[in-house]
Design a protein around this nucleic acid. Structure first.
Lengths: 197, 197, 197, 197
DNA sequence: GCCTAACCGAGACGGTACGTCTCGTCTTTAC
DNA sequence: GTAAAGACGAGACGTACCGTCTCGGTTAGGC
């Protein structure tokens, strides 16, 4: 958990914890991050404000925990059919759909934004939410590299960033629409760069 | 200008406009975006609050105009020495330094974050601030393409996103440090992808 | 006129002056004194704010002039039928009706209140509005005194105050309703006090 | 108390209540009613604005409670030496002094004025502040009436108004100075009117 | 019959206060 | 004995007016 305060407390009310998470995710979808308030969460959850302040340092921390409680911290693994390009395209297409789904996008965007503002939170966001995804790509690429499918001197981490950086950028800043075509093209470009020589 | 309200008014006080811009940029550096307030800007600028509300719809809009008044809207052009990789590396290294400079980074990050939250603002941010830079890369790549230095079937726009997406992503989320080495590697990877076949 | 500033100017726009008076009297009835604003008067009158500030020092001064422009400054005289009590009762009954009429009462009350607050204005209110009425009573009583109808040692001024003080008090503070019965009783009481001995 | 909102709340801070009353009475004396602001009271009292808005609907309501907290709601009784005229003169002389004392007059005038403007408040002012005094006179006069000292058919209420109306009127509108002589004369006049027949 | 000054409408300006909202802390009550 | 309920000091929000200050555009004498 993100809670830096006595995470071991056994006195803590699980009922309240769930109610706070539910209220947070409901409200973030209804009013957006800026108008999400601790008071509002407490009221919706039927909980005293102090109960929130006792366990979380900010609304972003509440939201992060709420989001993770839903999403789970479990390890992610990319499919490995032997066809790297196909695997990457499939996963990215799924991600496009996910990031175009308001129910997912609202809290995730809120957390990304909160992280961009606050270094302390961004560390949490990156390691607990974003890095899991990145690592899955890095692992898949390393496998391909071990199998000789891609150049031995390529850095899987950089390659991953060249895939997900443009993806994330389009999504976050809405600079251009996030489509399957777009991610397919990204993969094609990347495959050229990674081709063994 | 971002001012949606009668930007042609000749009655407007240029003195106040400048004072508001100066105050905004000073304060964003001193207290950060979240604690930047209209009230604070007005006080620092020696200006009535209404004078700000009269001309801008939000503190983000003020900041955007302030930033642009400093940066200027002028067209940017990338150097063209004939050596594409070297040119890209040089420009990206300069950008790395710029984005590591607090005086530049504070307002730019504030605007990026505000844009990520607010679709209306993100359109402004992207077209007026970000797109200028992107277009310069696209132009430079198109030149190289016309000269036969890179593959004819590559999309300069996507190529640019594969350079700047990872850059922006590292900077915004602080996932990993933004270094010259990093951008050099990005360029090297991209050159492989763009190599004529 | 109450205007302390160059009242002789021939350049002054009579049209604006009238429009300001009309707007003031309309607005005082619609929104009350507290919510009567110079801006509101100017807007309703289709006049620049400066035109009001040029000629009057305060909204109370505007209202006083507006009220007097309607009411006129003319001398008032009480009827003299020879029957003092009957004359007083008749006049007071008429006043009761007048002070129960909203169109008259709103601006008059506003001015009384403004006067109660501001010594400078109260002098204007008393001498230009109230004293005219008082003097008419004093004159009528003095006549009666000269005719031997009331005690020679009675002070007509004090007698007038004993009539109009209770009247004004009930009206201003709404302590009890202002009725014909009430003023009749006041006159009866006063007549006892004034009976020659 | 004038507080129309849950006056029974036990959660309320007595310390803040007192501080607000003190600040109100200090400020009304220093700056007058028009320049008395909720913001100013809060600042002087070291209290949040909301704490005032939570418990009172207007600055006039605050001031009324503040004044009553000082003055107390206790029953007042006029002296009864057997000599009605002397008793009335003594009490009225004391009142003259009181109403000529700035520390008393500032808040009382402010409340009278506020009451004159606002029917809802005037009811409060009259019943809670003014009526107490009036009743004392009415009681004293009734005693005298029962003792046969004044005419049996005189209305004590009207008699009281004939005493206090002129008094209040002179004071409020500053039409003429409020002196011992004046009130003595009023009593003398009244005694003639009340003489048994 | 023009010139020029004052007045006019309009409305931006630096301010102040409004009444509301939310913050994060502190206190009381009831379960 | 904990947690809901909510009062508290603090302070920003966005609005309404204040009284002052330009702006051009009439408008009316004095020349």
């Amino acid at each position: 958990m993100a809670t830096p305060k006595t995470p071991d407390s056994t006195r803590r009310s699980e009922r309240s914890r769930r109610a706070i998470f539910d209220a947070s995710l409901e409200l973030i979808g209804e009013v957006g991050y800026d108008k999400l308030t601790i008071e509002g969460i407490a009221a919706r959850a039927g909980v005293g404000k102090q109960t929130i302040y006792r366990w979380w340092p900010s609304k972003a921390a509440v939201l992060l925990d709420a989001f993770l409680a839903d999403a789970g911290d479990e390890e992610i693994e990319l499919p490995d059919t032997g066809d790297l390009a196909a695997d990457l395209k499939a996963v990215l297409r799924a991600s496009v759909d996910e990031f175009n789904n308001p129910a997912f996008e609202a809290p995730y965007r809120a957390l990304a934004v909160a992280g961009a503002n606050d270094p302390e939170l961004s560390e949490q966001f990156v390691t607990r939410l974003q890095e899991t995804g990145y690592q899955a790509y890095v692992n898949r690429l390393r496998h391909a590299q071990e199998a000789g499918a891609i150049a031995a001197d390529a850095d899987p981490r950089i390659a991953t960033e060249m895939l997900l950086g443009p993806f994330f950028q389009r999504w976050l800043m809405r600079s251009l629409p996030l489509t399957h075509d777009f991610t397919d093209t990204l993969v094609d470009m990347l495959m050229r760069a990674l081709a063994p020589r």
